[in-house]
Amino acid sequence: MNEEEKYKEIRDKLKKLPKIKASENFNINLKQKINLAESKITGKELHKELTKKREDNLINKILGSTTRPWLIPAMSMIVIIFVILIFVYKTRDVQDIPIITQEKSEQQITSAPTTTSETEKPKEKQEQIAKVEEKEDKKTETKMPAVKTSGTLRSTDEVRQAPTLPPAETDNIKVQTKTKDAKGTMREEGEKVGTDELGKMPETKEEKKSEKSTIKKDTSKVKMKLILTEEEIKSIRDSVEKK
């Protein structure tokens, strides 16, 4: 109340302010404006209704819903299936691309040193070598232990490809080379191989000559088919010369 009394003077002044009246045309102007606003609203509503009707007509023309209502679900299903197919097709494309590139890269890596034609050739060679060896074996009749290169040895290409031979194979080769050169000392080492494998020793000169020829052939095969160290080759040659 104190606040009200404090500002009593100014409050009285504000209360005494002349009251502004609306003009005489206020009601008429207001009615005109209301009519205008209503007409605008009705115009908008009419426009909306007309556009709706037009849309309905278009839909009816397209689908013929009034005459053929069954077309609506059928059409919608077709559209959905079409969309799904497109989606699936696109997703497949997207998934395939990296796989193809991966496969290509793998092929590039693997196909560089060996091709199918290259792998087939050694097999043929092996077969030919095996046949030749069999013939030679028949000739020598195993007076000397035959160098079993056919089963254990690989083609030159294969050997080159392989960084190291498996231990069993290398041992076998070494053993075989030892049997060739040291006939006297062979018995000591022959224990590893076994006496049965050594077979009978050559006795006649002819037999010795034929043996030498076979050994030479065998060594040449070894040179051709294997990448042996120079020391090994020298040792083989020495043994042949001694013989």
Partner: peptide, 27 residues
């Protein structure tokens, strides 16, 4: 109408505006 015109006039300070705004309010 008079109350509204008076209120708007005192708020805006314009007679024409007060009538227009009052009419708009009624609309």
């Amino acid at each position: 109408k008079d109350k509204l015109v008076n209120f708007i006039f005192r708020y805006t300070g314009s007679k024409e505006e007060s009538e227009d705004i009052a009419q708009e309010t009624f609309i």
